[in-house]
């Protein structure tokens, strides 16, 4: 069907809008590059990994303690949240009575809507002092892991829930007809069938954990040091940006843009991974 003139005008203006919306990511990357350019030129890429320490006022830009901070907090949170989230999703499908499952799903949704600064406040006032009883001061890698795992649990649980819903009913009937126990059904049929959806959930959760700023800033203690134990204070890349941006100048500021660039690159990799795994829909 051919389009009238008015339609064509509409389509072209819509394309313009879509172009703007699609270009924002490119714009972000461009501005991160522009922002980080001075320090890349003066110090080079290697100094972010090889310098003696993070003392940006003395031209030392080693980001590895923060990178370790981000990685450790994320690995901890994901490995803690994933089993709980998958069990939560299984609970809704196979164990809870229908009414309870509905309430539980609402609870998970509400948990997803709570702002990170509120999680941070709770972590700072309740969780950190409790950890402090074991090993002072309490603001630590462990506190960060616990808070983050609560925060990413809803993301993983909701995607796992959706993935399990997509397992065809006929598979379940088949299992029942074969006299499989419930656990055998789940382990041999449900989880393998839902695998790509579950993995997507874990990846999205990982992305959220890496990018989270406020809550980890509030509970992690923020010492620039590669942690030796889970009771040590850590600083993540995100927290580093939030803490130092206010007073950073020149190359110091540029090195914070480099952190932003690293974070964006990690997220980009994760999104591509999710895309490959699920071939299409990824955020939900």
């Amino acid at each position: 069907m051919s389009l009238s003139l008015r339609d064509r005008i509409l389509v072209w203006s819509l394309r313009g809008a879509a172009l703007v919306a699609g270009a924002i990511v490119a714009l972000i990357v461009v501005f991160l590059f522009i922002g980080s350019f001075p320090v890349m030129r003066d110090a080079g890429l290697g100094s972010f990994f090889l310098d003696e320490a993070w003392r940006p006022t003395e031209q030392l830009y080693n980001l590895t303690p923060m990178l370790w901070g981000s990685i450790l907090v994320t690995i901890g949170a994901v490995s803690l949240a994933t089993p709980l989230a998958v069990l939560s999703a299984l609970f809704c499908h196979f164990y809870a009575p229908a009414a309870l499952a509905r309430i539980y799903r609402r609870l998970i949704e509400l948990l997803a809507g709570i702002p990170s600064v509120v999680y941070g406040l709770w972590g700072l006032m309740v969780l950190a002092p409790m950890i402090g009883l074991i090993s002072a001061p309490g603001t630590s890698l462990l506190a960060g892991i616990l808070i983050l795992s609560i925060m990413i649990l809803p993301t993983i649980a909701m995607l796992a829930d959706a993935a399990i819903s997509n397992v065809p009913r006929s598979f379940m009937y088949g299992c029942a007809a074969l006299g499989f126990s419930r656990w055998t059904t789940i382990r041999r049929i449900v989880l393998p069938t839902a695998r790509s959806g579950l993995l997507t959930g874990v990846i999205m959760g990982t992305g959220r954990a890496i990018g989270e700023t406020m809550a980890v800033l509030m509970v992690c203690g923020n010492a620039v040091r590669t942690p030796g134990s889970i009771f040590d204070s850590v600083r993540t890349l995100t927290a580093n940006i939030a803490l130092e941006m206010a007073y950073a100048t020149d190359n110091h500021r540029a090195s914070l843009f480099v952190s932003g660039l690293i974070l964006t690159a990690i997220i980009f990799g994760l999104v591509m991974l999710a895309e490959v795994l699920s071939r299409g829909r990824i955020y939900g």
């Binding site: 972000i28 989270e212 995100t238 940006i241 939030a242 932003g260 980009f268 955020y283």
Partner: peptide, 14 residues
């Protein structure tokens, strides 16, 4: 999709 995953602090920098 990528935009949806960009960390909020990076939006702050941008």
């Amino acid at each position: 999709d990528v935009l949806a995953g960009v960390p909020s602090i990076v939006f702050g920098l941008f």
